[in-house]
Design a protein around this nucleic acid. Structure first.
Lengths: 124, 124
DNA sequence: GAATGATATGAATATAATTTCATATGACAC
DNA sequence: GTGTCATATGAAATTATATTCATATCATTC
């Protein structure tokens, strides 16, 4: 822990910082899909899906497995569900305008609320 | 939960997908710093630090507070420590080459290990 | 091994993000 | 209000990332 997070985290977050890849991840929450299915569901070019699946697999956010001619991709639920959970909690608490966080306005007002609330995502 | 993560998560992860911003976050783990201190510690232009602090504050990964002429930035530990924890766990388990994940090689070999291990980050 | 269906790859183009530099704004002390 | 230190902003230039299209590879069936 604490050893050069800035260097090691880069690819992790960069891979998630893309709407197509997030859409793929979201789709895969419903179960494994092959490339064609993903590309149809998201209404995107097959090659684009393939290109985007590569960093997702490299970072192990998804796993893949061949079945006959097709390749099925499945979600790394362990990591992704935790990540989505943190995001949801954070967005709900800190980004009341629907997670969009488009403005810096209202930071002062919000700060007061922050001080009073101290719920944690996972309580033991 | 589950409502258009792909749309709402974008800014969250994009903000984290930058080495300067990650370095700022890492620095702030040691406590609040003003802009000048950050820029000196990271050896970067002051204006660059300011530019990068903006999205961090917009997403509420950091908070800020004026003290006299200076503005001190502090980490949103609640969110960030959880995020770093997930990252560390994931990297250790899935990216044995030091979290770099530069290649897709060895995915087959790794996959076998994955099946046997099923530790969770937070156990209750 | 030829044909087909499914996925991956490469390279050019298009798009978006970051960095830099000059300068503006803000807060405070005098 | 002037001067000074601290931070923020805007816009141009640079750099990185994503998208597209054409085509290559791979697995399978016959």
């Amino acid at each position: 822990m604490k050893q050069n997070l800035s260097e090691t985290c880069g690819q992790f977050f960069s891979t998630l910082a893309n709407p197509t890849r997030l859409a793929i991840l979201e789709l895969l929450r419903d179960g494994p899909r092959n490339v064609t299915e993903i590309s149809e569901a998201l209404n995107q070019e097959q090659s684009m899906i393939s290109h985007n699946l590569k960093p997702l697999e490299r970072c192990r956010f998804v796993f893949s497995e061949r079945r006959k001619k097709e390749r099925f991709y499945s979600l790394n639920k362990e990591t992704m569900e935790q990540l989505f959970k943190i995001f949801s909690y954070h967005a709900e608490k800190y980004c009341p305008t629907g997670g969009k966080c488009r403005t810096n306005r209202g930071l002062q007002e919000q700060k007061k609320k922050d001080a009073s609330s101290s719920l944690y995502l996972t309580r033991h």
